[in-house]
């Protein structure tokens, strides 16, 4: 079920121009190293993509 929902939302986000910011990975509780690798890789990826563009938009709006 999770993989279904994520596959759909990834598609939708791509359409909105927000691709790459959602990721799904199966990691068992025994796979500590994989967890570290995936989280590190994803963090780096997001950092390289720059700040969340939505934050700017919503804050601008609040400011008026």
């Amino acid at each position: 079920m999770t993989v279904k929902r994520i596959a759909f939302v990834q598609e939708l986000l791509k359409f909105m121009g927000l691709e790459g910011r959602l990721h799904l990975e199966w990691i068992s509780s025994a796979e500590a190293q994989k967890y570290v690798d995936v989280v590190t890789k994803f963090t780096e990826k997001i950092r390289n993509m720059g700040p969340n563009p939505l934050r700017a938009i919503n804050e601008m709006k609040k400011a008026g």
Binding site: V3, K4, R5, I6, A7, F8, Q10, E11, H23, E25
Partner: peptide
């Protein structure tokens, strides 16, 4: 595209309300 499901085409449950026995979708790579 993902599920081959067209809502309202038939009287058929949505892929989001059926839990399958096997997983055919694989998470997209990063």
């Amino acid at each position: 595209d993902i599920f081959g499901y067209v809502p309202g085409d038939h009287i058929e449950k949505s892929p989001f309300s059926i839990i399958g026995k096997t997983v055919e979708l694989t998470p997209a790579p990063m």
